[in-house]
Design a protein around this nucleic acid. Sequence first.
DNA 1: ACTGAAGCGTTATAACATAACAATTGCGAT
DNA 2: ATCGCAATTGTTATGTTATAACGCTTCAGT
Lengths: 172, 172
Amino acid sequence: MARSGSTKPAGMPAFVGARHDHGQCVRTALGEAVRLCAERGARLTAIRRRVLELVWRSHEPVGAYDLLALLARDGRRAQPPVVYRALDFLRDQGLVHRLASINAYVGCALPSRPHVGQFLICRDCGNAAEIDDKRVTNALASSADRLGFAIGDVAIEASGVCARCAPGHGRP
Amino acid sequence: MARSGSTKPAGMPAFVGARHDHGQCVRTALGEAVRLCAERGARLTAIRRRVLELVWRSHEPVGAYDLLALLARDGRRAQPPVVYRALDFLRDQGLVHRLASINAYVGCALPSRPHVGQFLICRDCGNAAEIDDKRVTNALASSADRLGFAIGDVAIEASGVCARCAPGHGRP
DNA sequence: ACTGAAGCGTTATAACATAACAATTGCGAT
DNA sequence: ATCGCAATTGTTATGTTATAACGCTTCAGT
């Protein structure tokens, strides 16, 4: 969260506050997505864009079938493959991450450069914060290296309780 | 693998060789399990023990439904909850880890003390190596700490290609 | 032996994901 | 402009993983 009370800086803060300007999060994310896709010649079609918007509805990771239900509210009667394909595209573009430990998807806070997502997932509020601690990835890479293991994809996910939800922290 | 060609030391090597004495792995793992459960007053019942044995059939993580099929070969006509309950127990006891990224289960190489499992999963041979690099967990803990996030469970899983399966490495 | 708790068997269903193929759309080359 | 190819989307069906719920059995302590 933005514990300092500051508004969102350029890099998404780890845990956003309850009253952060989420519209700004969404605008930034969508803007970046449009820009990056254009740059790459990737087609951010209507449904892909819509799924990305829906993923960004909040900082709480959302399940594929939840997205399906949300699309249904739009009047679309989409089937599972529609959502999974959109998610695949968005993941390929680095716009969305999948959290394997909870089978859910979350918008990427740092889509412009490739990185290994590290997530802190609050069991209470459900929010997920993406961090990018190079010490973690470097250490893992070095261990793998020593074993001659060539790393492809990495999933680093910690579940626990965020500061805002910690006992003793009066809910702000 | 046991790159040095040594036999299995006290701590399981990261990637075991093709010709390692797997019987020894199993005996050690089962022995430890019996000892730890006795120590804790936890009941390693027949089915739990059998599931643990089956998980230890190889170093390749195994799916719950695969275990079900293996149990069926024993003549048991077990239903999914039977396997999941056994796995839950074994996980509670730290005897088995779940790999969220591939929905599979693997025997714990270091069951006697609690630890955060870190896994390298080979896409080619399917084997999973458990490592325990404190730099990784310390770095993650420190990042979480700085955010006031209290870590509960952690999943760290890297998929890639192990040394034995690497191109250019004549299969031994 | 009695009893309460833990474990197990069983049925049913929930939740997550993909295969396969048809229909449509976008888009460059002619 | 329109042809033809490739990418995208629609749709049906099914596969895979996991859990809820409830009754019966077994075990340990008294």
